[in-house]
Simulated assay, not measured.
Amino acid sequence: MEKSSVNECISTSLSDNQVYPQVCIDASRDYKIFNNFRRHPSYTQILEHVTEEQGSAYLQILANDPDIFAEMNTFKLNDNYGNPEMYEYPDIGLISPTTLRYIKVLVDIKKYFLTADNLNICEIGVGYGGQCRIINAYYKPVTYCLVDLQPALALTQRYLDNFILNSVISYKTMNELDIKLYDLVLSNYAFTELPRSVQDIYLRKVILNSKRGYITYNEITPKEYNSYKLDELLSVIPGSKAFNEEPLTYPKNCLIVWGANA
């Protein structure tokens, strides 16, 4: 398991808590665990805890984009694996609220950047690959680099191998990343849940070299992480702006976006 370089040996993220990585390893190796990992209590502490009510709010937003809404049955295939908690929603039927959140991010990508076609994308903190699959179900990125702890990447590969994807997919840990120019970097909460020492690595290797970016910002790390605050990130990332998180899921949450076309 990766550790940061600080003397206190702070873990690399809030998800690097030993229990969550072990669930990821077990699910990646055992089909019985994989078939139910999205309901595992130790997994849902980190992911898959979007509420039914939040799902309704996401649905209201994405329903305003008829082209994306028309692909709902394709997006719902995300829920064929892992046995997520699903709810009945008007006009679309059963779906995981987490999947609705991923589709809402897709709506934002279309809103801010117009398209993800022909882009080289890097996602920091990838869960089980659900966001990657949603983007690939609608757009055709050239490459998609998934960055996370090795146990999470193993589960992500097992999940994504069930789908035909448009992108050439790569899986990398923090230390395997090269300094590279990306067209778009994404991070849903994960980047802002890292210690500053690890954030600096991602800033140097990925974020400051990316033409466009979309980060869902939150402020939940312990004091010893010394994570970057919103005003600091806006000053560090050229051209970045803060936008409201809709719906607001936690106090101080917002979106950090740069390179927007609209």
Rank of each mutant, 00 (worst) to 15 (best):
E2H: 14
V6T: 11
N7F: 15
E8H: 09
T12W: 14
P21K: 12
C24I: 06
S28N: 02
R29E: 11
F37V: 09
R38W: 11
H40S: 12
Q45Y: 13
I46Q: 04
V50N: 02
D65S: 12
N73W: 05
L77P: 00
G82E: 09
G82M: 10
N83R: 06
N83Q: 10
P84Y: 14
Y89P: 07
I92V: 03
I95F: 04
Y102W: 14
Y102C: 12
V107G: 07
K111Y: 11
Y112T: 00
F113D: 05
T115A: 06
I121N: 08
C122F: 13
Q131P: 02
C132P: 02
Y138F: 15
Y139T: 00
K140R: 09
Y144A: 02
L146A: 07
Q157T: 08
L160A: 03
N166P: 02
S167N: 06
K172G: 01
M174E: 07
D178V: 06
L181K: 10
N188I: 06
F191E: 06
R196V: 07
D200N: 13
I201G: 01
Y202Q: 04
Y202G: 05
R204P: 02
N218L: 10
P222F: 12
Y225W: 08
S227I: 09
K229S: 09
D231K: 10
L233Q: 10
A242W: 01
E246G: 01
P251D: 10
K252C: 10
I256G: 03
V257Q: 09
W258R: 10
A260E: 05
N261E: 09
A262D: 04
